[in-house]
C-alpha cells in the first residue's frame, strides 16, 4: 500500500527547477532509497514532504491526505520525522535533551503543567523514558549526558536518527545517514536501518550515495536527476537502467559512483 504519494510534485526557485514533475509512491513498511547526483533535488524533495517549501505545482499525499499546505511541525505530528544532511543538533544541549525535544508531537505537553508538581514530574519522566529507550536502541545510552558537540561525527548522525525515531513516527526520512561514517559505522548503519524497518515496522525513505548501502537495504529505488525522476522500481533493475548509469557516469567519471556497473 502506498503511504506517501507524489503527484507531479514540483518546486521552482526562480529559474531552477529543483524538483520537477516528480510522480512516485512510497510503500508502507518498505525501505525506499532516493539516489541521484549532487543537486538532483533529493534534499529538496524531503523539504517538500516536511513542509519547508511550498509546492509550485502538484501534490504530496500522506495516507491520501495532502500535506502540501502544512507547516513542518504539523507534518511531524502526523508521523513523518526526518534527519538533516548537514547535522543539526542543538549544540548547547546534552544528547538526552536533544532527543527529549522531539517528543512534543507525541506527548503534547501543556505549558501550565510545569507549575503543577505532579504533572511536571510525570511529563519529565515520560520524555526521559522515551528518549532513553531510543538511546538504548542506537547504543548511545552511555553518551546520554554528553554535549552533542562532544560526540564523533558518526555518533552525531546516530543521535539525529534517534531524534527522528523518538516520536514513534510512521515514516522516517534519512538524508544521507552514512555521510562521514567510516566503513564499520556504515555497516552497522545498514543493519540498523533494516532493524527499524523490520522490528519497529517503520517505513524508511533514505537518501544515500553509498551504493553498497543502497543495494543492501532498498526494496525500491527512486532516481532523480536535475529535479526529474528518471527511474524508479526494484533495486537491481533500476541500477542497470542505462539512463541511471548515464546520470551517474555520463558527466564525470571521477565521482565516487564509478563502481555502479
Amino acid at each position: 500500500m502506498a503511504i506517501l504519494e507524489f503527484e507531479r510534485a514540483s518546486v521552482h526557485f526562480g529559474g531552477v527547477r529543483a524538483v520537477d514533475h516528480v510522480s512516485s509512491e512510497i510503500e508502507q513498511g518498505k525501505i525506499t532509497s532516493i539516489i541521484g547526483p549532487n543537486g538532483a533535488g533529493k534534499t529538496t524533495l524531503f523539504n517538500l514532504i516536511t513542509g519547508a517549501y511550498k509546492l509550485t505545482q502538484g501534490d504530496i499525499r500522506f495516507r491520501g491526505q495532502s500535506v502540501a499546505r502544512l507547516s513542518p511541525h504539523m507534518v511531524h505530528s502526523l508521523g513523518i520525522a526526518r534527519t538533516f544532511q548537514n547535522i543539526r543538533l542543538f549544540s548547547s544541549m546534552t544528547v538526552l535533551e536533544n532527543i527529549m525535544i522531539s517528543t512534543h508531537s507525541k506527548l503534547k505537553p501543556k505549558v501550565l503543567g510545569i507549575f503543577i508538581p505532579g504533572t511536571f514530574k510525570r511529563v519529565e519522566e515520560n520524555m526521559k523514558g522515551m528518549a532513553e529507550k531510543v538511546l538504548v536502541l542506537l547504543d548511545l545510552l552511555p553518551k546520554a549526558g554528553y554535549h552533542a558537540s562532544a560526540l564523533s561525527y558518526g555518533e552525531q548522525r546516530r543521535v539525529e536518527i534517534a531524534r527522528a525515531l523518538v516520536s514513534d513516527p510512521e515514516i522516517v526520512l534519512l538524508d544521507e545517514p552514512s555521510a562521514g561514517m567510516n566503513v564499520r559505522e556504515a555497516k552497522e548503519l545498514i543493519k540498523f536501518i533494516s532493524q527499524i524497518n523490520k522490528d519497529l515496522g517503520k517505513t524508511v525513505v533514505v537518501i544515500e550515495h553509498n551504493m553498497r548501502v543502497v543495494r543492501h537495504i532498498s526494496d525500491k529505488i527512486i532516481v532523480l536527476d536535475h529535479g526529474c525522476k528518471i527511474a524508479d522500481g526494484v533495486s537491481e533493475e533500476v541500477l542497470r537502467n542505462p539512463k541511471v548509469v548515464e546520470a551517474y557516469l555520463g558527466h564525470s567519471r571521477l565521482t565516487t559512483y564509478a563502481h555502479v556497473r
Binding site: 511541525h73 511531524h76 526526518r82 538533516f84 543539526r88 525535544i101 522531539s102
Partner: peptide, 8 residues
C-alpha cells in the same frame, strides 16, 4: 528551523 522540523 531544526526545532520546527522536530514537531515544535
Amino acid at each position: 528551523d531544526a526545532a520546527e522540523f522536530l514537531g515544535i
